[in-house]
Design a protein around this nucleic acid. Structure first.
Ligand SMILES: [Zn+2]
Ligand SMILES: [Zn+2]
Ligand SMILES: [Zn+2]
Ligand SMILES: [Zn+2]
Lengths: 401, 401
DNA sequence: GAAAAAGGTCACTAGGTCAA
DNA sequence: TTGACCTAGTGACCTTTTTC
């Protein structure tokens, strides 16, 4: 008796609890049946709406009305921008969005599939068409290495090897894979720190890469420091894009969420685009990094190939601050290799087009780097790395002497 | 056994349900195939009719008959006002109209093209991958001129023909060959004068080219003068680069020396580089000149192709100064031709790359023009030409009247 | 192991496009 | 201006993962 009473009481309690839950109002649209979703009480429609629009950029996408659309259960479909703005304003967190589970094993078969199960057209229509990006085949010049001298070939190969040796791509992959093995709540906690570690490693890597380039090593520490300060943003950002492409971060949910929460949706979208459009031939991009590092101004300048004789440089005194002329000569060493390599590999016409593509990509990246540096944490980190590396450069110089 | 029974039942049910749906009648016009639209059972045509006319004001827009027109599937087009009145009376809700999705980015081939191509072509054409890195392949659209209308083709051909007719390329070749036939001492004496003649002829040529462009000719002389002043440096410089490429001045020692003495070594090097990197397809470059000339500011702006109807322009009064909107419309005529021509000629992917190359080249040239104008003799000469051409424009206008 | 809170599926109905 | 045909956004209903 006591038991049955208890049971019925429990059932009552349960019903009351359920009724209470169903009466909870959505913080976004005020409809009923709200639950906790992405850390805010809201209705299922608003939950799925938020997930689908999480990457909307409110800066470029604007409300076509006055920007103060009402968001109620009746009017919530009228303006996506104001609805999403309200989602954010009531505190829904993009960071709680997880990666896709992948396709489900559904037991239920839907009517339409049954009705059309004999026709194969549906299958072929839904098939994903794979990217048309093809690795370029070498042209007929393949066996003609006369454009690049033996010294140039070995310099090229050294640059790429050193870059890969210093590359933080394994580190990035490692951080991301460890982080994604944690449960979601903890993942969220360490996301911000990990992201800054990843970004920071890009700049440190550029420093340790450039440091061993002979022409850079031959400079006095003050000159090295000047170049670092001047060009670290572009080289670090660019190197970052190359590394992110190699590490395939765009498919990592952890990376996307971390970047989103640190840099905002606009920059995340742009960076994702830029990474996705990275030219295929990474050799060229790696070669571009020293070229940019030896720039005489922070805006990239690809100088004319003049008649450069490399001996001239070693003959000059190296005890001076880097002057424009001297820098141009160094830069030209690498520019010459780059152009000759491109012409050798792709032929003149295609080389021109590829070059245009690389420049466009670099400029896009440059814009992103500029915007990234408007984030205070980012700017401070870069500054710290520059100061630290300058200290190292000077102390090394002392040891050498 | 149980499965097959279930299956057939489901198929039957599905078919029955579909048949029922298709037999539903529109509450507005009584046609079949009605669904729920804006909270009322109605047919697709009535749905789009309601959305398109949602802002109609029934108080000011009156029926031209008695206000009681029949609205049936046959008669629904007769009277918009009564049809819309009925839409409201059966309960269609304007509140359910949502904000625009914005333009869909699909690049579809039109039906004529679809019909003439095999299916394989369609698949590859409809999936456009936005990447600068695709190897240009032979494009199947190469022989399909349907992208550009007949009017656009003839305008394109006119622009190029007029440009070539006014081109000083023969003049440049002539001056250079005469000069190089003189003995070295005399050559040196006349070098400076000849160089300014050559440079001057570039700017005069642009004036006489632009002058016959219909949209330019239709403007009042004050507007023409404004555009000339604003854009002469870029158009003249750019046209110069094109002409110099055609005249192959880079291989002329006389030209090199003359330029060197007038503009200094830095600019000579840069200009030589820019001329050397001129994109191959000169048609596009010639088309770019009117586009730049109709720019609303002197820094180049390639506007988006919006919905341009050329008729609109001729309908507008031409007696005013060129305003931004008007200029953009004119510019868009040529921008549209340029893009369509590039896509027609090179296919989408390669067109993108070539476009990037052209813009890069233009910007390089722009930098050179800016530097060239820092040379006093150059700036004075350009100013003289502008003043002279303005005088001509105004006097012509008087003769016309 | 159950509740909570993620993500997946698909029918439905918005809006966009283009040619008549 | 109209309407056939297209793509895209919504939300009910479901499965999977995480938390406790
Ligand atoms: Zn809601
Ligand atoms: Zn709004
Ligand atoms: Zn109807
Ligand atoms: Zn009527």
């Amino acid at each position: 008796m006591a038991f049955s009473e208890d049971t019925s009481t429990n059932i009552d309690t349960y019903d009351v609890v359920q009724a209470f839950k169903n009466s909870q109002l959505c913080k976004v649209c005020e409809s009923e049946n709200a639950r906790m979703n992405f850390s805010v009480l809201c209705c299922p429609p608003c939950k799925v709406f938020f997930r689908r629009n999480a990457r909307m950029d409110l800066n470029t996408n604007q409300c076509i009305y006055d920007g103060h659309c009402d968001v109620t259960v009746k009017s919530r479909q009228i303006c996506r921008y104001c609805r999403f703005k309200k989602c954010l304003s009531v505190g829904m967190q993009r960071e709680l969005i997880r990666a896709s589970h992948g396709p489900q094993n559904r037991l239920r078969v839907n009517n339409k599939q049954l009705a059309t199960k004999n026709s194969l057209t549906n299958i072929s229509r839904n098939r994903i068409i794979f990217s048309l990006d093809v690795i370029p085949t070498l042209n007929l010049l393949r066996n003609d290495r006369s454009l690049l001298t033996v010294e140039q070939w070995s310099l090229l190969s050294n640059v790429v090897n050193v870059y890969d040796a210093k590359s933080p791509v394994a580190n990035v992959r490692n951080i991301l894979s460890i982080q994604s093995s944690f449960p979601p709540k903890i993942r969220l906690k360490i996301a911000a720190t990990n992201m800054m570690d990843i970004i920071g490693s890009q700049f440190v890597a550029v420093y340790s890469f450039v440091e061993v380039i002979p022409e850079f090593a031959a400079m006095p520490p003050s000159g090295q420091a000047t170049l670092m300060e001047r060009n670290i943003l572009n080289t670090g950002g660019y190197s970052g894009v190359v590394i992110f492409r190699e590490a395939e971060v765009c498919s990592s949910e952890v990376f996307q969420n971390g970047f989103l929460s640190k840099y905002g949706s606009q920059l995340t979208n742009e960076v994702t685009k830029v990474i996705g459009r990275t030219p295929m031939d990474l050799t060229l991009l790696k070669l571009l990094i020293p070229i940019v590092m030896f720039s005489t101004c922070s805006d990239v300048v690809i100088p004319v190939i003049k008649n450069v004789d490399r001996d001239n440089i070693t003959r000059e005194e190296t005890g001076f601050l880097p002057n424009t002329k001297h820098l141009l000569k160094i830069q030209n060493i690498y520019v010459e290799i780059m152009f000759k390599y491109m012409i050798y590999r792709y032929g003149y016409d295609e080389a021109t087009m590829r070059f245009a593509g690389i420049i466009k990509h670099f400029l896009d990246q440059s814009m992103c780097s500029k915007h990234a540096n408007e984030v205070q944490a980012h700017a401070e980190m870069v500054e710290t790395i520059v100061i630290e590396s300058e200290r190292l450069l000077i102390s090394k110089d002392r040891i050498d002497q």
